[in-house]
């Protein structure tokens, strides 16, 4: 399990990185924390001729509040979020500890996780729940991609050739919203078998804004729009069972060695119910 032959480069500016990408085309791959890419190299599931290590590019390490939300540079590590806080973004705070182990989070980056688009990953689910904006940097400047159109299949994103993910802006939720992140994994730190992210705002007992996302139960994280619809205008308590049932029905899960599609539906029903109990006022 050793990486295939490759060459390496470590640009110090975004422009240099983009130049290299342009020059080497699909031969080249950005290397962020390497926590997904290097295992893939070791398994020889990936054979880039050139790794462009984006770890030394200061522009990709920003973390700041902007008008549209909480901006996180692509190479900000998951550990840094855990250590320095998530700027009041509660869902992110709840989700990060579920990512692998401390040692993985020490290197793994926010941008890497989102670009990698693992169906079972936490951060893409958070991005989708918070209607995040992914900002791509390319030869012609920046381009915004909304979360719903960023994930286009398992391990596939909608970045164009020559583009890098520069940063992600996680959107705000209404001030009264409460968040929950529920995940079922076989062991602590394993990728989820199923998970649900929730941000729900209520006014006087009835739901005014419901965002529910399921992950690890399909090609990409999905918003549970039927369940969200069930919740609208009702009290969480009264809609709990219906929402869970709707959630289980609307996903398109698959079988694997950790469970059948049917089992994943049961898990989503359970996790939806529990997440909603968490956020009930």
């Amino acid at each position: 399990m050793k990486p295939p032959p490759l060459s390496y480069s470590r640009p110090h500016s975004l422009d240099e990185a983009l130049d290299l990408l342009a020059e080497h085309g699909d031969e080249a791959r950005p290397l962020a924390g390497g926590q997904s890419l290097v295992p893939m190299l070791n398994h020889r599931l990936s054979r880039p001729g050139l790794l462009i290590d984006i770890g030394a590019i200061a522009q990709l390490q920003r973390m700041e509040r902007t008008e549209s939300g909480w901006l996180i540079g692509a190479t900000v590590t998951q550990r840094r979020l855990e250590r320095d806080g998530t700027g009041g973004c509660d869902l992110l705070r709840l989700a990060v500890p579920f990512i692998g182990h401390r040692q993985i989070r020490a290197r793994g980056t926010v941008g890497g996780s989102i670009a990698h688009a693992d169906p079972a990953a936490e951060l893409p689910a958070v991005a989708l729940t918070l209607d995040a904006t992914m900002v791509a940097a390319g030869p012609d400047g920046e381009r915004e991609i909304d979360a719903a159109s960023f994930f286009v299949g398992p391990y596939m994103n909608s970045l164009a050739e020559g583009e890098l993910l520069s940063h992600v802006v996680f959107g705000e939720v209404p001030p009264t919203a409460r968040c929950s992140f529920r995940e079922f994994a076989r062991r602590k730190g394993d990728f989820a078998v199923a998970g649900v992210a929730a941000a729900v705002a209520t006014d006087d007992g009835s739901v005014t804004d419901a965002r529910l996302t399921a992950f690890a139960v399909g090609s990409n994280p999905v918003r549970l729009s039927a369940a969200e619809g069930v919740l609208a205008g009702r009290s969480i308590d009264s809609a709990l069972a219906d929402a869970a049932e709707a959630a289980a029905a609307e996903i398109e899960p698959w079988d694997d060695i950790h469970g059948s599609a049917q089992y994943r539906r049961q898990l989503i029903a359970t996790l939806t119910k529990r997440a909603l109990q968490d956020v009930a006022p």
């Binding site: 062991r187 602590k188 730190g189 990728f191 060695i257 950790h258």
Partner: peptide, 23 residues
Amino acid sequence: LCFNDLGQPQTAFMDYLVPSAME
């Protein structure tokens, strides 16, 4: 350790769940 009906192994180390201190 699972195999499919062609005899192809289905369990990678990642899925071979050696208990950690949490389990």
